[in-house]
Simulated assay, not measured.
Amino acid sequence: MFTIIGERINTTLNQVKDAVEKRDADYITNDVKKQTQHGATYIDVNAGARIGHEEEDIKWLLEVVQKATDLPLCIDSPDPAILEMAYDLVEKTPMVNSISLEKDRFDPMVSFLKGKECRIIALCMDDSGMPKSAEDVISRAKAIVKELENIGMKRNDIFVDPLIQPLSVDGNNGPIAMEAVKTIMQDLEGVHTTGGLSNISYGLPQRKIINRIFLVMMMANGFDSAIMDPLDKDIMAALKTGEMIAGHDNFCMNFIKSVRSGEIKA
Protein backbone atom coordinates (compact mmCIF):
# COMPACT_ATOMS: atom_id res chain seq x y z
CA MET A 1 0.00 0.00 0.00
CA PHE A 2 1.02 3.58 -0.68
CA THR A 3 2.58 5.38 2.30
CA ILE A 4 1.19 8.89 2.82
CA ILE A 5 3.35 11.18 4.93
CA GLY A 6 0.99 14.00 5.96
CA GLU A 7 2.90 17.23 5.40
CA ARG A 8 0.72 19.81 7.12
CA ILE A 9 2.34 20.18 10.58
CA ASN A 10 5.24 22.24 9.37
CA THR A 11 6.14 25.69 10.70
CA THR A 12 7.07 26.91 7.21
CA LEU A 13 3.28 27.19 6.80
CA ASN A 14 2.11 30.50 8.25
CA GLN A 15 -0.97 29.14 10.04
CA VAL A 16 1.06 26.40 11.70
CA LYS A 17 3.82 28.82 12.62
CA ASP A 18 1.26 31.16 14.24
CA ALA A 19 -0.33 28.26 16.11
CA VAL A 20 3.04 27.13 17.44
CA GLU A 21 4.01 30.66 18.50
CA LYS A 22 0.70 31.03 20.36
CA ARG A 23 0.76 27.43 21.64
CA ASP A 24 -2.65 26.94 20.04
CA ALA A 25 -3.11 23.23 20.70
CA ASP A 26 -6.66 23.22 19.30
CA TYR A 27 -5.50 24.24 15.82
CA ILE A 28 -2.81 21.55 15.71
CA THR A 29 -5.11 18.91 17.19
CA ASN A 30 -7.88 19.57 14.66
CA ASP A 31 -5.50 19.46 11.72
CA VAL A 32 -3.88 16.21 12.86
CA LYS A 33 -7.27 14.58 13.43
CA LYS A 34 -8.32 15.53 9.89
CA GLN A 35 -5.12 14.12 8.39
CA THR A 36 -5.68 10.92 10.32
CA GLN A 37 -9.28 10.63 9.15
CA HIS A 38 -8.36 11.28 5.51
CA GLY A 39 -5.78 8.55 5.08
CA ALA A 40 -2.37 9.67 6.34
CA THR A 41 0.01 6.85 7.22
CA TYR A 42 2.46 9.06 9.11
CA ILE A 43 2.12 12.59 10.45
CA ASP A 44 5.18 14.67 9.58
CA VAL A 45 6.24 17.07 12.35
CA ASN A 46 8.62 19.86 11.39
CA ALA A 47 9.36 22.82 13.69
CA GLY A 48 12.42 24.20 11.94
CA ALA A 49 11.13 27.55 10.70
CA ARG A 50 11.39 29.53 13.96
CA ILE A 51 15.14 29.96 14.20
CA GLY A 52 16.38 29.47 17.73
CA HIS A 53 13.11 27.88 18.90
CA GLU A 54 13.15 24.49 17.13
CA GLU A 55 13.88 22.38 20.19
CA GLU A 56 11.17 23.87 22.41
CA ASP A 57 8.70 24.00 19.51
CA ILE A 58 9.12 20.39 18.48
CA LYS A 59 8.84 19.19 22.07
CA TRP A 60 5.50 21.00 22.34
CA LEU A 61 4.32 19.79 18.95
CA LEU A 62 5.17 16.16 19.65
CA GLU A 63 3.17 16.26 22.86
CA VAL A 64 0.13 17.82 21.17
CA VAL A 65 0.27 15.69 18.01
CA GLN A 66 0.59 12.40 19.88
CA LYS A 67 -2.49 13.20 21.93
CA ALA A 68 -4.43 13.81 18.71
CA THR A 69 -3.61 10.62 16.77
CA ASP A 70 -2.62 7.00 17.06
CA LEU A 71 -0.57 7.23 13.87
CA PRO A 72 3.22 7.02 13.99
CA LEU A 73 5.12 10.24 13.35
CA CYS A 74 7.72 11.33 10.85
CA ILE A 75 10.14 13.50 12.82
CA ASP A 76 11.56 16.04 10.43
CA SER A 77 14.59 18.28 10.96
CA PRO A 78 17.88 19.20 9.26
CA ASP A 79 19.56 18.99 12.68
CA PRO A 80 20.66 15.48 13.78
CA ALA A 81 20.66 16.61 17.42
CA ILE A 82 16.99 17.61 17.17
CA LEU A 83 16.13 14.28 15.57
CA GLU A 84 17.89 12.38 18.33
CA MET A 85 16.08 14.38 21.00
CA ALA A 86 12.73 13.93 19.26
CA TYR A 87 13.28 10.19 18.83
CA ASP A 88 13.26 9.79 22.61
CA LEU A 89 9.89 11.56 22.85
CA VAL A 90 7.89 9.53 20.33
CA GLU A 91 5.65 6.72 21.52
CA LYS A 92 5.60 4.63 18.33
CA THR A 93 8.33 3.57 15.92
CA PRO A 94 8.91 6.73 13.87
CA MET A 95 10.09 7.63 10.45
CA VAL A 96 13.13 9.93 10.54
CA ASN A 97 13.50 12.68 7.94
CA SER A 98 16.32 12.56 6.99
CA ILE A 99 19.86 11.42 6.16
CA SER A 100 22.00 12.38 3.15
CA LEU A 101 25.51 11.64 1.88
CA GLU A 102 26.71 15.11 2.89
CA LYS A 103 29.53 14.37 5.33
CA ASP A 104 28.50 16.91 7.97
CA ARG A 105 25.05 15.33 8.06
CA PHE A 106 25.89 11.72 7.27
CA ASP A 107 28.39 11.01 10.05
CA PRO A 108 26.26 12.19 13.02
CA MET A 109 23.14 10.59 11.54
CA VAL A 110 24.82 7.21 11.12
CA SER A 111 26.01 7.40 14.71
CA PHE A 112 22.45 8.21 15.81
CA LEU A 113 20.77 5.52 13.68
CA LYS A 114 22.92 2.58 14.80
CA GLY A 115 20.75 0.27 16.84
CA LYS A 116 17.66 2.46 16.52
CA GLU A 117 14.28 1.06 15.54
CA CYS A 118 12.92 3.42 12.91
CA ARG A 119 12.35 4.03 9.23
CA ILE A 120 14.52 6.58 7.44
CA ILE A 121 14.14 8.96 4.51
CA ALA A 122 17.40 8.89 2.57
CA LEU A 123 18.05 11.96 0.42
CA CYS A 124 19.99 11.56 -2.83
CA MET A 125 22.20 14.51 -1.91
CA ASP A 126 25.96 14.61 -1.46
CA ASP A 127 28.62 17.29 -1.02
CA SER A 128 28.58 18.08 -4.74
CA GLY A 129 25.04 19.45 -4.43
CA MET A 130 21.70 18.60 -6.00
CA PRO A 131 21.64 15.78 -8.56
CA LYS A 132 21.62 16.93 -12.17
CA SER A 133 20.56 13.72 -13.88
CA ALA A 134 18.77 10.45 -13.24
CA GLU A 135 22.18 8.76 -13.18
CA ASP A 136 23.26 11.08 -10.35
CA VAL A 137 20.15 10.19 -8.35
CA ILE A 138 20.54 6.46 -8.94
CA SER A 139 24.22 6.31 -8.02
CA ARG A 140 23.63 8.24 -4.81
CA ALA A 141 20.64 6.06 -3.96
CA LYS A 142 22.75 2.94 -4.30
CA ALA A 143 25.53 4.45 -2.20
CA ILE A 144 23.33 5.57 0.68
CA VAL A 145 21.32 2.33 0.77
CA LYS A 146 24.58 0.38 0.98
CA GLU A 147 25.77 2.55 3.87
CA LEU A 148 22.48 2.14 5.72
CA GLU A 149 22.53 -1.62 5.22
CA ASN A 150 26.06 -1.66 6.64
CA ILE A 151 24.70 -0.37 9.96
CA GLY A 152 21.93 -2.93 10.02
CA MET A 153 19.00 -1.12 8.46
CA LYS A 154 16.59 -3.23 6.42
CA ARG A 155 15.61 -2.16 2.94
CA ASN A 156 11.93 -2.14 3.90
CA ASP A 157 12.72 0.66 6.36
CA ILE A 158 14.56 2.83 3.81
CA PHE A 159 12.62 5.44 1.83
CA VAL A 160 14.81 6.91 -0.92
CA ASP A 161 14.03 10.52 -1.80
CA PRO A 162 15.15 11.34 -5.38
CA LEU A 163 14.91 15.07 -4.60
CA ILE A 164 12.10 16.16 -6.91
CA GLN A 165 12.95 19.53 -8.44
CA PRO A 166 10.67 22.11 -10.11
CA LEU A 167 9.69 21.91 -13.75
CA SER A 168 9.79 25.71 -13.81
CA VAL A 169 13.58 25.50 -13.40
CA ASP A 170 14.21 22.67 -15.87
CA GLY A 171 11.63 20.86 -17.99
CA ASN A 172 13.61 17.65 -17.63
CA ASN A 173 13.09 17.44 -13.88
CA GLY A 174 9.91 15.38 -14.22
CA PRO A 175 11.47 12.76 -16.53
CA ILE A 176 14.59 12.67 -14.33
CA ALA A 177 12.51 11.86 -11.24
CA MET A 178 10.47 9.21 -13.02
CA GLU A 179 13.49 7.49 -14.57
CA ALA A 180 15.35 7.55 -11.26
CA VAL A 181 12.44 6.07 -9.30
CA LYS A 182 11.86 3.33 -11.86
CA THR A 183 15.51 2.22 -11.75
CA ILE A 184 15.81 2.51 -7.96
CA MET A 185 12.74 0.33 -7.44
CA GLN A 186 14.10 -2.24 -9.91
CA ASP A 187 17.75 -2.29 -8.84
CA LEU A 188 17.28 -1.87 -5.07
CA GLU A 189 14.53 -4.40 -4.49
CA GLY A 190 12.77 -3.92 -1.18
CA VAL A 191 13.39 -0.19 -0.70
CA HIS A 192 10.69 2.45 -0.97
CA THR A 193 10.73 5.81 -2.73
CA THR A 194 9.21 9.02 -1.42
CA GLY A 195 9.57 12.77 -1.75
CA GLY A 196 7.98 16.18 -1.58
CA LEU A 197 5.43 15.79 -4.35
CA SER A 198 4.52 19.46 -4.71
CA ASN A 199 8.13 20.47 -5.45
CA ILE A 200 7.47 19.58 -9.09
CA SER A 201 4.96 22.43 -9.55
CA TYR A 202 6.80 25.22 -7.71
CA GLY A 203 6.60 28.50 -9.61
CA LEU A 204 3.84 27.35 -11.96
CA PRO A 205 0.11 28.19 -12.09
CA GLN A 206 -2.57 25.57 -11.34
CA ARG A 207 -0.19 23.64 -9.12
CA LYS A 208 -2.74 21.14 -7.85
CA ILE A 209 -3.46 19.61 -11.24
CA ILE A 210 0.28 19.34 -11.94
CA ASN A 211 0.77 17.55 -8.63
CA ARG A 212 -2.09 15.13 -9.34
CA ILE A 213 -0.87 14.11 -12.78
CA PHE A 214 2.72 13.87 -11.60
CA LEU A 215 1.73 11.61 -8.71
CA VAL A 216 -0.01 9.13 -10.99
CA MET A 217 2.91 9.14 -13.45
CA MET A 218 5.38 8.59 -10.62
CA MET A 219 3.23 5.73 -9.28
CA ALA A 220 3.37 4.12 -12.72
CA ASN A 221 7.16 4.08 -12.31
CA GLY A 222 7.07 2.47 -8.86
CA PHE A 223 6.78 5.48 -6.53
CA ASP A 224 5.13 4.07 -3.38
CA SER A 225 5.14 6.97 -0.92
CA ALA A 226 4.85 10.74 -0.92
CA ILE A 227 5.10 13.67 1.45
CA MET A 228 1.74 15.23 0.61
CA ASP A 229 -1.50 16.80 1.83
CA PRO A 230 -4.08 14.11 2.64
CA LEU A 231 -6.76 16.81 2.93
CA ASP A 232 -6.47 17.55 -0.81
CA LYS A 233 -9.48 15.53 -2.02
CA ASP A 234 -8.49 15.63 -5.68
CA ILE A 235 -4.99 14.29 -5.15
CA MET A 236 -6.30 11.60 -2.81
CA ALA A 237 -8.83 10.62 -5.48
CA ALA A 238 -6.01 10.37 -8.03
CA LEU A 239 -3.99 8.27 -5.59
CA LYS A 240 -6.79 5.81 -4.83
CA THR A 241 -7.67 5.50 -8.51
CA GLY A 242 -4.02 4.91 -9.39
CA GLU A 243 -3.71 2.26 -6.67
CA MET A 244 -6.74 0.47 -8.12
CA ILE A 245 -5.47 0.57 -11.71
CA ALA A 246 -2.06 -0.70 -10.57
CA GLY A 247 -3.71 -3.75 -9.03
CA HIS A 248 -3.22 -2.74 -5.39
CA ASP A 249 -6.91 -2.57 -4.48
CA ASN A 250 -8.52 -6.02 -4.15
CA PHE A 251 -11.83 -6.15 -5.98
CA CYS A 252 -11.60 -2.31 -6.24
CA MET A 253 -13.11 -2.08 -2.77
CA ASN A 254 -11.17 0.97 -1.56
CA PHE A 255 -12.12 2.85 -4.72
CA ILE A 256 -15.78 1.85 -4.46
CA LYS A 257 -15.89 2.76 -0.76
CA SER A 258 -14.41 6.19 -1.53
CA VAL A 259 -16.97 6.80 -4.30
CA ARG A 260 -19.86 5.81 -2.04
CA SER A 261 -18.63 8.09 0.76
CA GLY A 262 -18.30 11.03 -1.64
CA GLU A 263 -14.51 11.21 -1.35
CA ILE A 264 -14.19 10.53 -5.08
CA LYS A 265 -16.48 12.48 -7.39
CA ALA A 266 -16.52 12.93 -11.15
Rank of each mutant, 00 (worst) to 15 (best):
V32P: 12
K182A: 15
K154S: 15
N250K: 05
Q206T: 10
R155Q: 06
T41F: 00
V90N: 11
I58S: 04
D157L: 03
G262V: 11
W60H: 06
D107L: 08
L204H: 10
A238H: 11
I184R: 06
N30P: 15
K240V: 13
S128N: 11
A134K: 10
A68Y: 05
I227S: 14
D234P: 14
S168R: 07
I120W: 02
V96Y: 10
M253K: 02
I213R: 07
E91R: 11
V64N: 04
V65R: 03
G195N: 15
G129K: 09
R207Y: 09
M1P: 15
V32I: 03
I264Q: 07
A25S: 07
I138P: 02
W60E: 09
I75H: 06
M228S: 11
Q37A: 10
F2N: 01
E54F: 07
S258R: 12
D249E: 00
V20W: 06
S261I: 03
D232V: 12
A246W: 09
T69H: 08
D57A: 00
C252R: 00
F106L: 14
N150W: 03
L89I: 09
K17S: 03
D161S: 08
S98A: 15
E147G: 01
E7L: 00
A81S: 15
G203N: 04
I227E: 14
Q165D: 11
